[in-house]
Design a binder for these strands. Structure first.
Length: 283
DNA sequence: TGCAGTGTTGCTTC
DNA sequence: CGAAGCAACACTGC
């Protein structure tokens, strides 16, 4: 679910909802997360939230005690800001995203931040703010594609220089090359750029690279504008769906007619990921 | 019914 | 070193 546009949507929601809130309670029933947070409960309690940030697909929630909570939602994670009084969202409780809650922070205003995660791949940890730089450097993440500093020159250097004979889709998904693109947006970006996902990166022509660069910025920006893709169970912090699924052109549309040329969308496997493309529009 | 497929990352292996 | 394969987990849908 959560790729750059979804995580960005969540972070913007967090900024609206939890900045300035005081944490007064902590709960966790997930063994792996408890392990990570062992002995650190006191770092959460009686602190105030001062900032919410995104780096790649990571969410960083900064506290007023020099600590930062770092969350990764992986496949099925959700962050939900919801009232402690369950009667207030009775119906929504049945929805999958409201179940499978494994970690909660309670606030003094009788709301909570709940981390739900069906498949339990997601991670929550707390580190000191001055460790953040090292934390992210260790991940060797590539540049943020939506930053102004991510110019075409930077794109060419970082992306192309690294990638030689790899298939372009695998390169787009490689977080050490470019931060934040996942399977949905990789397929959509390549459709927009009219490039077949299996093309070898070093064989792309200058014009194709320029188009690809433009498509990356365009599709990710659009994804944020439409508040993410809820093909499956993505929800923002208030439980609202995104709307980008209405604009999807190829992802998981196997066998359906291409919106441009009516050719049936193909599904292949690239780097063990389901990959969808139009064999006529994408060369 | 059963098994392939699912949005991610990181560890192991070659 | 880079790159490919697979595991972590639980559910859906063919």
């Amino acid at each position: 679910m959560p790729e750059l546009p979804e995580v960005e949507t969540i972070v913007r929601g967090l900024r609206k909802k939890i900045i300035g809130k005081k944490i007064v309670g902590f709960w966790c029933d997930h063994r792996k997360i408890r392990q990570k947070l062992k002995g650190k409960k006191q770092k959460f309690l009686n602190t105030k939230i001062v900032a919410a940030k995104r780096r790649a697909k990571y969410i960083v929630i900064e506290l007023d005690n020099n600590s930062a909570i770092v969350i990764h939602l992986r496949m099925t994670g959700h962050l939900l800001y919801r009232p402690l009084d369950k009667k207030k969202y009775d119906k929504a409780l049945k929805d999958p995203y409201n179940q499978y809650v494994h970690f909660k922070l309670k606030f003094s205003n009788k709301y909570e931040l709940a981390f739900s995660d069906l498949r339990k791949f997601g991670t929550v940890e707390i580190i000191s703010k001055n460790q953040l730089k090292d934390f992210f450097e260790a991940k060797k993440l590539g540049p943020e594609p939506l930053k102004k500093s991510f110019s075409y020159e930077v794109f060419k250097k970082t992306v192309v220089a690294h990638c030689n004979a790899r298939q372009i889709k695998q390169v787009l998904l490689d977080q050490t090359v470019l931060a934040g693109i996942g399977n949905i947006y990789a397929d959509e970006i390549l459709f927009d750029a009219k490039i077949k996902p299996t093309r070898k990166t070093h064989r792309l022509k200058e014009a194709e690279l320029k188009k690809l660069y433009t498509s990356i910025k365009k599709i990710l920006t659009k994804g944020i504008k439409y508040r993410g893709t809820s093909t499956s169970d993505f929800r923002d912090v208030t439980g609202e769906k995104g709307r980008f699924q209405d604009l999807i052109r190829v992802y998981r549309l196997t066998g359906e007619p291409c919106k441009k040329c009516k050719t049936k969308i193909k599904r292949i496997v690239v780097g063990q990921r389901g990959t969808h493309y139009c064999s006529k529009c994408q060369k």
